[in-house]
Design a protein around this nucleic acid. Structure first.
Length: 565
DNA sequence: CACCCCTTGGCCCTATAGTC
DNA sequence: GACTATAGGGCCAAGGGGTG
């Protein structure tokens, strides 16, 4: 399930700007960056002919609607872009389509791990996978993300403008934002950002503007756009989901006689839509069911079946919230410190009781929990019996799990073959965070759901989220700098330079890395010589709605000059 | 059912090359 | 020889899809 509670907004500057955005909610046009998608995860076209949209053949031929630029003689010079070209399936003369889609109200709704976004006639369905998330930014900043740079061995990404970086951030090609697509609004943009480019997207087109009611269960669009391999959503289609679950509970396939219940849950997306390894482990721990217990044994227990049903409904409600009063933080931190999935102890301590956290190999548990940990159960309120069932201890019934402090004790993590079983640390978002379903409604203001930063569930998202909430100042942008302790060691000799060049020739990856390093060195030297003026990039902001973003652009320009001094 | 693929970047370990 | 910086190799994390 995508996180529903990730980003709120706190920066007064954006808050004030948001208040001026008017009563029509979030209005924008879609800009796709096909080259940032990997080849394997190339964007797909959805055939919406069965529900009043375009079929694949038609959409191949048909140009996307464009908005005429007011008081401009350049209308006729705008390129015609087909959907296939926009998706990168056909060659395009320019990297970014110089085409202005009509601004249209944006609606969105999540189902399982997918998010559907409608922009006018376009429908985009996103699967975030591991760590994809949405980034909200000023439209005046969007023009600065123009330069595509290599990212890793195969990928591409957008170079972060140098002025968005802190001087302490390490120089190199890693300063980038992997914006895969962007909905460009008048004042704000929402971008799909995925550091590893795992995010997938499907794009379709209707013959009319898509309305909010089209993104509701039971509509023709609803029944068409979602991935066929995933069953009903436990929050939006509760009755169907429970019906599916009940019929699942009554079947006893042969393979489930030995298959662990955890594997069965994660593998059955028809019944457990959106339950991955983290959440399934969590579900079972809350139900006091051992993750390695055979599924058939679990199904034979009415108590277990009832517990899982209740817990699924409870968790589904928990993970479907939206902020009532989102606050904007300026987030350019695309990678946390440490490993992308590292657990942030400080963040956990600060937010225990507010968010869900998962850690793979180590957890901090109280002595009471330690007694239960070897059995795989983390809820200290239950007593475990030899038959694998658990009953609540009356003397501990009044306790809430979140009131327990976690101390430094390693716990056992179950592994079977290459199976992965997670440790969970129990916490829950505050109740007041929940409200609504869609991220954007026509009558929303920018305090509304349209400005949520959604993300997949996990430590990366968690740390990003915590940083955005806890930082009183703007967080560092880009990757943290490597600590430089001085110029130890010997200087590079001519002999070493030759060796380096030979090394760079030995593979494509090494060559790219080497050339990027040289390019960066040249740029920095030019910078030092005063050959490049940072303020020049102000022109770029006019690419996207420059007039509307003028105020922000001017302020930015002033900031840049100040920064330059 | 095990294993690999996609993808990136951090971390750990080891080897190397330089200085004092 | 002690110390330090640097660089490469191997491994790790993620979830869905594919293969044999």
């Amino acid at each position: 399930m995508p996180e529903r509670w990730c980003v709120d907004y706190n920066e007064e500057q954006i808050r004030q700007a948001a208040l001026r955005s008017g009563p029509n909610g979030f209005v924008g046009f879609l800009e796709f960056n096909p080259s940032v998608f990997g080849i394997r995860n190339a964007p797909q076209i959805m055939d919406l002919s069965s529900c009043g949209g375009y079929s694949i053949d038609e959409s191949e031929l048909r140009a996307l609607p464009q908005q005429k630029k007011k008081n401009s003689k350049e209308d006729c010079e705008l390129d015609i872009v087909t959907m296939r070209q926009m998706l990168g399936l056909d060659a395009q003369t320019t990297h970014r389509p110089h085409v202005r889609m009509p601004m249209a109200p944006v609606h969105a709704v999540a189902r399982g791990k997918e998010l559907a976004v409608a922009i006018g006639e376009l429908v985009m369905v996103i699967h975030f996978f591991t760590e994809g998330h949405l980034l909200v930014d000023y439209t005046s900043n969007h023009g600065f993300f123009q330069t595509i740079v290599p990212c890793g061995e195969k990928g591409k990404s957008f170079q972060l403008p140098s002025d968005l970086e802190d001087p302490t951030i390490a120089a190199g090609p890693k300063r980038h934002a992997r914006k895969m697509w962007t909905i460009v609004g008048r004042r704000y943009t929402i971008s799909g950002v995925d550091h590893q480019a795992f995010m997938t997207a499907r794009l379709g087109r209707m013959r009319r503007t898509v309305e909010t009611q089209d993104l509701r269960p039971g509509s023709a669009l609803w029944d068409t756009i979602w991935d066929a391999g995933h069953g009903p959503d436990w929050f939006l289609e509760k009755e169907k989901a429970v019906e599916q679950y009940d019929s699942w509970a009554l079947t006893f396939p042969q393979e489930e006689s030995r298959k662990p219940i955890l594997d069965v849950i994660t593998g059955d997306q028809q019944t457990f839509n959106g339950m991955g390894a983290w959440m399934a482990t969590d579900l079972l721990a809350r139900c006091c069911i051992h993750p390695l217990q055979p599924a058939s044994a679990v199904k034979r227990s009415k108590m277990f079946i009832s517990r899982i049903r209740a817990e699924m409904l409870r968790m589904a409600g928990l993970f479907r919230p939206a902020f009532k009063k989102p606050e904007v933080k300026w987030v350019y931190v695309f990678m946390p410190k440490g490993s992308p999935y590292s657990f942030c102890e400080h963040a956990h301590r600060s937010w225990s009781g507010a968010v869900w956290v998962y850690r793979r190999t180590k957890a901090n548990l109280s002595p009471e929990q330690m007694e239960l940990a070897p059995l795989g159960y983390l809820d200290p309120r239950y007593n475990l019996h030899a038959d694998g069932e658990a009953t609540i201890d009356p003397s501990k019934e009044h306790l809430e799990p979140r009131h327990f402090l976690y101390r430094d004790f390693p716990i056992h993590v179950y592994r079977k073959g290459s199976g992965k079983y997670y440790t969970y640390i129990q916490a829950a978002p505050p109740r007041e965070w929940y409200d609504g379903v869609s991220i954007v409604e026509p009558d929303d203001d920018v305090f509304g759901n349209g400005y949520l930063n959604k993300s997949t569930l996990g430590p990366y998202s968690f740390e990003l989220f915590v940083k955005s909430r806890l930082s009183k100042t703007k967080p560092q942008r880009g990757r943290p700098a490597k600590l430089k302790t001085g110029s130890r060691g010997g200087p590079k000799s001519e002999h070493n330079k030759n060796k380096l060049e030979a090394y760079a020739r030995s593979s494509k990856r090494r060559r790219i890395s080497y050339e990027l390093g040289l390019e960066l060195q040249r740029t920095e030297e030019a910078h030092d010589d005063g050959l490049i003026e940072v303020g020049e990039r102000d022109d770029a902001s006019s690419f996207h709605d420059g007039s509307l973003a003028q105020d922000d652009g001017r302020r930015r320009s002033q900031r840049l000059r100040k920064h330059d001094k």
